[in-house]
């Protein structure tokens, strides 16, 4: 018997459109939480625009971000890319992409071989629970990516005291 899914499986969507980005399996805990959010499909147009249709491969990129963000206004993240960072082979551009923010491109980072290590730590805003994608373009033009599932919680004591 076939189980009907509310959305096309994320894997198949990205495989078919972006050319084979295989997403890492969700953690066992997250897998038990029924997903009500739109699929990663939403990011496909912007990814296609960046890659110009070139295939995006999983691996080489590591995205460290909390599974459960305490507040969407400030979510720390670190991206590291496996690369020798030599003049012949380096990470030229790093994109941080959000599935649900009103503007999907969070940041575009240009690196040079002088970086020595392709790593970036920063803090982002997330408008609700969603996937975050780190997309790296190498100096040979190839694309590599990693994605992470982040749950953003809302605050109970919302401050609308409007002091400023």
């Amino acid at each position: 018997m076939k189980i009907r899914q509310p959305y096309p499986a994320r894997r198949s969507v990205l495989k078919s459109i972006a050319g084979g980005l295989l997403l890492p399996a969700a953690s066992p805990v997250l897998a038990q939480i029924p997903t009500v959010r739109p699929p990663l499909e939403q990011l496909v147009p912007v990814m296609k625009q960046i890659t110009n249709g070139a295939p995006v491969r999983e691996s080489r990129v590591k995205l460290d971000i909390p599974h459960l963000a305490e507040n969407g206004h400030l979510v720390p993240l670190t991206v590291t890319v496996e690369s020798p960072m030599t003049a012949a082979d380096y990470v030229s551009t790093l994109y941080l992409l959000s599935e649900k923010n009103p503007r999907p491109i969070i940041a575009k980072i240009s690196l040079s071989p002088e970086a020595g290590r392709a790593a970036l730590t920063t803090r982002i805003r997330l408008a609700g629970a969603q996937h975050v994608v780190a997309l790296a373009q190498m100096s040979d033009g190839s694309f590599w990516a990693a994605s992470a599932d982040v749950i953003v919680t809302e605050t109970a004591c919302l401050d609308a005291s409007d002091i400023t």
């Binding site: 923010n101 503007r103 491109i105 969070i106 240009s110 040079s112 803090r123």
Partner: peptide, 14 residues
């Protein structure tokens, strides 16, 4: 020599 460049939008925290 330019070694790093960041183009940032509203998705970067305050």
């Amino acid at each position: 020599t330019e070694v790093f460049r960041a183009e940032m939008g509203s998705g970067i925290a305050a």
